[in-house]
């Protein structure tokens, strides 16, 4: 199958997942918000659904690994310090900007939210600039 078609189907599954979570649980499928909520909330009602969603996500990872062994790629960064820096940026940035690729890029844009359209354009732009700097200016690995 053409990779564009597979990507389209993968995206459709993500859209279906977000729709199920909204229909049954009344929650937004923003992964950074769901994960970050583990640190911000103390009540059982807020924690339990987040934990089962994230268990489903990691469990789904094992299913992905079984179905398509090459789908879980390895990090391309040259070393651990880069991974820590990138992780910190993603954690701080998604909390500060209230969302990531899923919360803004899928759920927010689906709602037609200007905030999410602006956020998505912004993180795609700085992502592209970062890759440009690392690959074409510094000549690094990513």
């Amino acid at each position: 199958m053409h990779p564009f078609l597979t990507a389209l189907m993968g995206g459709a599954l993500i859209g279906l997942s977000a729709s199920l979570l909204l229909l049954f649980n009344g929650r937004i499928a923003g992964i950074s918000g769901i994960a970050g909520g583990l640190l911000a909330h103390r009540t059982r009602a807020e924690l339990s659904w987040r934990i089962t969603f994230l268990l489903g996500l990691v469990g789904g990872g094992f299913l992905v690994r079984a179905l398509w062994p090459q789908a879980l790629g390895a990090p391309t960064v040259p070393g651990a310090a880069w991974v820590v820096a990138a992780g910190l940026l993603v954690g701080i940035g998604t909390k500060l900007g209230n969302g990531c690729t899923s919360g803004h890029g899928v759920c927010g844009i689906s709602r037609g939210a200007t905030r999410s359209i602006v956020a998505t354009l912004t993180f795609m732009a700085t992502g592209a600039v970062t890759v440009f700097l690392v690959r074409h200016v510094l000549g690094g690995a990513p």
Binding site: V58, G61, A86, G87, V90, I92, G93, G97, F123
Partner: peptide, 26 residues
């Protein structure tokens, strides 16, 4: 804007946003 900008930089650096990173724990 600053949050999205920082997130994008980290995303570009490692190639992971939160969902795929958690899935890749597998």
């Amino acid at each position: 804007l600053s949050g999205a900008a920082l997130f994008g930089a980290g995303w570009g650096l490692a190639g992971y946003c939160p969902g795929p990173a958690l899935t890749s724990l597998a």
